[in-house]
Design a protein around this nucleic acid. Structure first.
Lengths: 152, 152
DNA sequence: GTCGGACCTCAAGTACACTTGAGGTCAAGG
DNA sequence: CCTTGACCTCAAGTGTACTTGAGGTCCGAC
């Protein structure tokens, strides 16, 4: 546990609250890049605690791993990220968050317009042709979830 | 195309914008219950257009199929749902939506507190121990997404 | 009557974010 | 030195919400 030897994956898990398997997965996804000790075990920098924490927060904010990876690409790989680095990213995230909130509020307002009118027929309801209908028409599942299904 | 014979799955797809396969899936999930004609093909009531539309909207609002099924369980199966039926459900949905918005705003406010302080270390940051930490600790993936990944 | 498009079932595939399991290695305490 | 727990890899499984494909049937227009 000498300070200069880096943290083991178990220590990282204990300190972030992530599962060991999740951390390994994040490495596969390129979100952290531990080195290996003589025996082939992963060793992490202290700065990786921040990186992982950032991943957790970003997930809560609704970003996919791919998006998080893109966002973190700007972070220095070898230097510990500075306050300025995190702030820059946080600002970007705030903008995305704001957009998400605005979209939900818009949806809520449309729904308000429909409550009571019973108009859930295809011709008239404003909910059917939202402004952003151009997007979200690809194939594959399109999630929009809010919280863990386990909570229900 | 006589009015009394019900709608084919292809007609339903054309009028809702859903894929035929999605409609069959929704039947498997118990969201609609078409009958079969002599040849074994599905025939839908006109009210099923509303049901499917409702499913689409609810998905946009972030509800899972299981939640939607639960919400729609109150709807009459044999009578076409009335305005009052839809309104009742819409009100419930609005509450859920509001909750989701509030959660995001809360997160945004926490993030605001962290921008610039660079405090993404585990000890101090308010983002790490949100009020709802009790929930969301089960296993399995916990989604929280905002919009389609295809959009990126 | 016949032909093609719409329909049928059932199994498997896809994407995301992980977890679980099998089978084996490493390291630190007694 | 030896045991035990932490670690390793790689493959497969999980859950949600579907799509795609294979192989076959049905219906309506000509």
């Amino acid at each position: 546990m000498a300070a200069s030897e880096g943290l083991s994956i178990g220590e990282m898990a204990a300190r972030t609250g992530l599962a060991v398997s999740a951390i390994r997965y994040y490495e596969d996804e390129g979100l952290v890049q531990p080195w290996r000790n003589a025996g082939g075990q992963r060793r992490f920098q202290r700065a990786d605690l921040r990186r992982l924490s950032f991943v957790m927060i970003a997930q809560r904010l609704g970003f996919s791993i791919a998006e998080i990876r893109a966002e973190m690409a700007d972070l220095p790989r070898h230097r510990a990220p500075s306050k300025a680095d995190w702030s820059r990213i946080s600002v970007a995230f705030r903008a995305r968050l704001e957009a998400r909130i605005a979209a939900l509020e818009d949806l809520r307002d449309r729904l308000d317009g429909c409550i009571g009118c019973g108009c859930l027929s295809l011709e008239a309801c404003a909910l059917y042709n939202p402004a952003d209908s151009a997007a979200t028409r690809g194939s594959g599942p399109r999630y929009l979830l809010g919280d863990a299904p386990a909570a229900k």
